[in-house]
Design a binder for these strands. Structure first.
Lengths: 188, 188
DNA sequence: GAATCGATGTCAGTTGCTGACATCAACCGT
DNA sequence: ACGGTTGATGTCAGCAACTGACATCGATTC
């Protein structure tokens, strides 16, 4: 048996989500989160660069998976075809997490600072996707725009999925949003 | 003559942009900005909700102008036609401000917290535009997607304009980005 | 079994930000 | 002309986010 309880990060993230849900993000101090997890405030800040980051540990994995998937699509696919394929694959990661995503999303949308953090994670993801497209030979501004368009589809589709009952899958919502974007931009 | 020097906000914004440029955002304290403007830290926080906000006073006006312009396009225009027209009009606001925009953008891109703030301003703008489109009878998710697509075009076009020499106008870059988005999303 | 390591704890300090209250020129009504 | 009100600012005390320096002590390594 180790000197400390295992899975410190997991305990911190669970405690944070619970406390933010109970009394709100601003009304919760880092010391309170740490205390509920059986740790100290200083340890909290060793695991997370700031108080908000405790809700975004999954972002790195999502970005990696997204980039890998996009990079693995056939070179022959047009930029938005590749994005569509990547979106399809990524949606599978969220198949069993509707309830968790719902709780987390409720906390985030209730606070402006957390929305800011969410947006910069999406922007970072868009930048990584644009770089991947460029590596596939797509020129700018096409690469950046395809990445931003993909993020717009992901954002809107995700919001509608998380705001729904969970009966329709995320992949479903993403396909619908992409089709809608195509219809809208189809003008002369 | 008043009891105080006039244009406190203007002095604070100028001092902030200068100091952030000289020594960086994090290395500048709110008290230092206030001091250079001949005011106190407390007064700084009366004018701006937080330290970052001093760089974003123009966002409200931009959003208002954007929304007004979009609302004033003929009801017959399709969503992206209306967005394109609004982008065109908004570009005129930036005709003589390339140098200022360049300095400000350099400061913002150099700091993650400032990039976060910029992103949430754009998100707020997108939400306002989506609401305006809905008021024109556009359904969701089309309204949200058109707004997000418009913001993507604005973002990419603005970045390319601000990173250029200023010879090509912002309107120019926006038209190019929009055309590129249309080309990309035109797939089956 | 000694040396090292790594996750955690302790403590003191800086900065962002806020509430409560004071000041005093300008303005307003009589 | 004069008393009251207003509004932008100043002063001060305090909390919470975050950081650097150093200590602790099981576990691991040689």
């Amino acid at each position: 048996m180790g000197r400390w309880q295992p899975n410190a990060r997991g305990r911190l993230e669970q405690a944070a989500l619970d406390l933010f849900g109970e009394r709100g993000f601003e009304q919760t101090t880092a010391a309170q989160i740490a205390e509920r997890a059986g740790l100290t405030e200083r340890t909290f800040f060793r695991h997370y660069g700031d108080k908000r980051e405790v809700l975004f540990s999954g972002a790195r994995e999502l970005e990696e998976a997204f980039v890998t998937t996009l990079a693995d699509t056939p070179e022959t696919a047009a930029p938005m075809e590749a994005m569509a394929s990547a979106l399809e694959t990524i949606a599978a990661f969220f198949l069993d997490s509707h309830e968790f995503a719902r709780r987390r999303h409720a906390v985030i949308t209730a606070n402006a600072e957390l929305r800011e953090r969410e947006l910069i994670k999406l922007a970072s993801l868009a930048a990584a996707l644009a770089a991947t497209l460029r590596r596939r030979g797509v020129k700018d501004p096409a690469a950046s725009l395809a990445a931003e368009a993909g993020m717009a589809v992901f954002k809107i589709g995700f919001e509608r999925w998380v705001g729904g009952t969970g009966e329709r899958t995320l992949a479903d919502h993403l396909r619908e949003s992409l089709a809608e974007l195509r219809a809208i931009t189809a003008g002369a």
